[in-house]
Amino acid sequence: MGIKKTLGFGVATAALGLTLIGGGTFAYFSDSVETTGTFAAGTLDINADPTAIVDIGNLKPGDHIPRTFKLKNDGTLDIKEVLLKTSYTIENRAGAPANTDDFGKHIKVKFLYNVDKLNDVIYETTLYDLQNQTPDAVERGFFLGERSGLRAGSTDTMIVDFEFVDNGQDQNQFQGDALNLKWTFEAKQGAGDVR
């Protein structure tokens, strides 16, 4: 190859290289936008006021113990239902022989009434039987009262009446005994929404 051809080929190669470099840096309009997202979960926060619904001693058969308390939704989400779970333990008096009957069978919940929903959550049952039930404490009564559930920031007033049932028989085995009741109110959310 002659010098002219070699120089021509070199110039052509350099021109092609400059064209590729220049072509890669041409100007054009552009724009961009950045989007973000946040997912913050709400809270379910059920509370009772007072938390000690019953604390009473010296009971005798035939005594009634009426009490009022409030269920409060201190969370940010509406509560669909509040299930009542019952458990208890019995402490026999020191030195006494073991009972032949369960003290919980002799403590009757005469009623648990939701004033706001106009509903009998429990009409009448013993603590013993209530252990196998989970009634909804914030369900609306028939046609009347607030809608079922407990809206965020709202309160329902509850009235309960306990009775130490006098069965007309010898109940001496319960003298000095203590029944330690635990009611757990378990809040459940409703179905999700399209948002």
Results as ranks from 00 to 15, higher is better:
61 P>A: 03
53 I>T: 06
46 I>W: 02
46 I>D: 00
93 R>V: 15
31 D>K: 11
73 N>E: 02
46 I>F: 03
45 D>C: 03
74 D>T: 05
48 A>C: 10
85 K>F: 07
100 T>N: 15
71 L>I: 10
37 G>V: 13
89 T>K: 15
37 G>Q: 14
85 K>M: 09
67 R>Q: 13
91 E>I: 14
93 R>M: 13
48 A>D: 07
30 S>R: 11
84 L>A: 07
61 P>F: 03
44 L>Y: 04
54 V>H: 07
40 A>T: 11
42 G>N: 09
75 G>I: 00
69 F>V: 01
47 N>Y: 06
65 I>S: 05
56 I>M: 12
81 E>Y: 10
36 T>K: 14
31 D>Q: 13
31 D>S: 15
59 L>M: 11
32 S>G: 12
68 T>D: 12
56 I>P: 04
75 G>M: 01
42 G>Q: 10
50 P>C: 07
69 F>A: 03
87 S>C: 04
54 V>Y: 08
42 G>Y: 10
37 G>D: 10
62 G>I: 01
70 K>L: 01
74 D>M: 06
68 T>C: 11
86 T>S: 10
29 F>N: 15
39 F>G: 12
55 D>L: 10
56 I>F: 14
44 L>K: 01
33 V>G: 14
32 S>D: 10
42 G>H: 08
44 L>N: 03
71 L>V: 11
63 D>I: 14
98 A>G: 11
87 S>N: 14
39 F>L: 09
72 K>N: 05
62 G>S: 04
54 V>D: 04
83 L>Y: 09
74 D>A: 12
49 D>P: 02
62 G>H: 00
100 T>R: 12
95 G>S: 07
78 D>Y: 04
52 A>T: 12
50 P>F: 05
35 T>Y: 13
66 P>D: 08
52 A>M: 13
29 F>I: 04
33 V>M: 09
68 T>P: 07
29 F>Q: 13
44 L>W: 01
40 A>L: 12
76 T>Y: 09
97 P>D: 02
67 R>T: 10
34 E>H: 15
80 K>F: 05
53 I>C: 08
47 N>D: 09
41 A>W: 08
43 T>V: 02
84 L>C: 09
43 T>M: 01
82 V>P: 02
30 S>T: 06
44 L>P: 04
43 T>C: 00
30 S>H: 06
79 I>Y: 00
88 Y>I: 06
33 V>E: 12
73 N>V: 02
